[in-house]
Simulated assay, not measured.
Amino acid sequence: MLITATPGPDNLMVLGMGISKGRKQGIMFGLGCAMGCLSHTLLAVVGISALIAASAVAFTLLKVVGGLYLIWLGFNAWRSAGAVNVKAVGPVETSLARLFFKGCFANAINPKVVLFFLSFLPQFVVAEHGQVGAQIAALGLTFTVQAAVLFGLLGYFSGSIGQWLNRKPAAGVILDRVAGTVFMGLGLKLIFTR
């Protein structure tokens, strides 16, 4: 839980989504980010995570794609006109299902999560008990469940902040610029960090 609560791209994206779009949207995006962990669990179970970590080309490609996605999110935040609008009435521009899948995708392309699952989960596997794949799957599912709880709570409470910001429209523009800068900085760091 401490690892999930540590600030990172997923946390910032859930926080930004909840603040700018509202509670339900923040929760759905957060749940999507958590469910993205299932892709890493599956990769760890079948051993592909080890291949990605061993192949500099595969890891670099995943890292660049993840970094470009964060830069794209940051660019869109900068283009925004302060999208802090979480009123209960009116249409929401993005469906909840789409936000859920965006969260899944954002997490699935995060190479740091691949390395986390590769390096952290196996430490808790007891080879003598056999069924190593099943043990990794259980650990991955446990991690996914706790991430869903934490990201869901983050999305919920960030929506409350968004409602407060609704009364201060200039704060929305500032928030978008700050979030955009953070996302672009994280994307560049991800691309250029060895």
Score class of each variant (00 low, 15 high):
Val86Asp: 13
Ser160Asn: 14
Leu115Ile: 06
Gly90Asp: 03
Tyr69Arg: 05
Ala97Lys: 13
Ala54Trp: 05
Asn76Asp: 13
Gly133Asn: 11
Val57Asp: 08
Val45Tyr: 08
Lys168Leu: 14
Gln123Leu: 00
Leu15Val: 08
Arg98Tyr: 12
Arg167Lys: 15
Val114His: 04
Lys87Asp: 07
Leu188Gly: 10
Thr6Asp: 12
Ser160Asp: 11
Trp72Leu: 03
Ala77His: 04
Lys189Ile: 11
Phe157Leu: 08
Ala54Glu: 03
Leu31Glu: 13
Cys37Val: 15
His40Cys: 01
Ser119Glu: 05
Gly133Pro: 07
Val149Asn: 01
Thr144Trp: 02
Tyr156Phe: 15
Val64Phe: 02
Leu68Arg: 08
Ala147Leu: 06
Leu121His: 01
Val132Pro: 06
Val64His: 00
Lys24Glu: 15
Met35His: 09
Asn166Ile: 11
Thr6Gly: 12
Ala147Tyr: 05
Asn11Ala: 13
Val125Ala: 04
Met184Glu: 11
Ala5Ser: 12
Tyr156His: 12
Gly26Ile: 01
Cys104Asn: 08
Ile27Cys: 05
Gly90Thr: 02
Val46Lys: 15
Phe105Asp: 09
Leu190Arg: 05
Leu141Pro: 08
Cys37Trp: 15
Gly36Asn: 07
Ser39Phe: 13
Leu186His: 03
Arg167Ser: 13
Val46Arg: 14
Ile27Tyr: 11
Met13Lys: 04
Met17Cys: 11
Ala108Tyr: 10
Ile161Asp: 11
Asn76Trp: 12
Gly8Lys: 03
Ala171Trp: 11
Leu62Thr: 09
Leu70Pro: 02
